Simulated scan of single mutants.
Amino acid sequence: MPIDVAKALAADPRTSPISWGHKDVQLYHLGLGAGIPATDPGELRYTLESRLHVLPSFATVAGAGMAAMGGLAAPGIEIDLAAVLHGGQSVRVHRPIPVTGEATQTSTVSAVYDKGKAAVIVLRSETSDADGPLWTSDSSIFVRGEGGFGGERGPSERLEVPSREPAFTVERPIREEQALLYRLSGDFNPLHADPEFAKLAGFDKPILHGLCSYGMTLKAVVDTVLGGEVGRVTSYRTRFAGIVFPGETLRIRMWTQQGRIQVVVTAVEREDAPVLADTVVEHRA
């Protein structure tokens, strides 16, 4: 069997050093569409080193963002990467991410679920610096054709969309070149840049990185609901429900509760086709 669940779960953690600086943070924010208008004080917090703060979703790209995905090479996992989809992502921040940092990232396979025709591998990364824990990140990796091994199906995290009108609705355009800029933060998958590769994968043209939509959405929530204060975010999770193309527009609907914001993201130009679902931002008052 390509996935030996017991072996994968028992494998020793993989530990690696990571580091980042203000240029990495600025590049990431620009890849999310920050900096428009360029002189807006709210945007300068994402783009100007003297005022810089760090979106918690930066945790997905810190240190080039590939350490967690290295879990797919863990003992007990032998899969065709062409069958792999990023199914979901969560980040819990234990304190604000510093603009410049050196840290140790420890990655494990925390779970493997049997979805019948597919398997879901949950890759967990714990990141700490000299002052203690910084963040915990879980990536849910959907592997087509690898289910049916008799394992647990795992939790169902589907959220009902509230029946009431959202408290806030904003739209965020995706620039034509945005995927080309975002990939410089570490994800060089040609699916997001090479038209010929995208056609081989079944798409008319390159698609935007799911984690770019993830970051764009968190920025919209922080700017719209949390007064631009990234330090108020404690956790952020989503399920990748569909694709979006550069040149399209994200419609981001937000429902607020005490300490919690539920979000639904769709593609405006394709009759609100789903992009992100089961999305929740938890925050401090």
Results as ranks from 00 to 15, higher is better:
Asp12Val: 11
Glu269Thr: 05
Val222Cys: 04
Ile3Trp: 12
Ala62Arg: 11
Gly151Arg: 13
Ala64Gln: 15
Leu52Ile: 04
Pro166Met: 11
Arg253Glu: 11
Gly231Tyr: 00
Leu250Met: 12
Ser140Thr: 07
Ala68Leu: 10
Gly21His: 07
Val230Ala: 13
Lys199Trp: 07
Ile36Met: 14
Leu276Gln: 09
Thr279Val: 10
Pro133Tyr: 00
Gly147Asn: 07
Asn189Arg: 03
Leu27Phe: 07
Glu78Pro: 04
Arg124Gly: 03
Pro37Ala: 13
Thr100Asn: 13
Gly215Trp: 02
Ser107Cys: 09
Asp40Met: 04
Ser50Asp: 10
Leu191Asp: 03
Pro162Ala: 11
Leu123Ala: 08
Arg175Gln: 11
Glu43Asn: 06
Gly76His: 01
Val99Pro: 08
Phe203Cys: 04
Asp12Gly: 08
Ile18Ser: 04
Ser107Tyr: 05
Ala64Val: 10
Thr238Leu: 10
Pro166Thr: 02
Ser19Asn: 12
Asp187Asn: 04
Glu160His: 09
Arg172Gly: 05
Gly35Leu: 05
Ala67Asn: 15
Phe245Ser: 12
Ser90Gln: 13
Trp135His: 14
Ala67Cys: 09
Val225Ser: 04
Tyr113Leu: 10
Leu200Lys: 15
Pro190Ser: 09
Glu177Tyr: 13
Val268Met: 08
Leu44Phe: 06
Leu123Val: 01
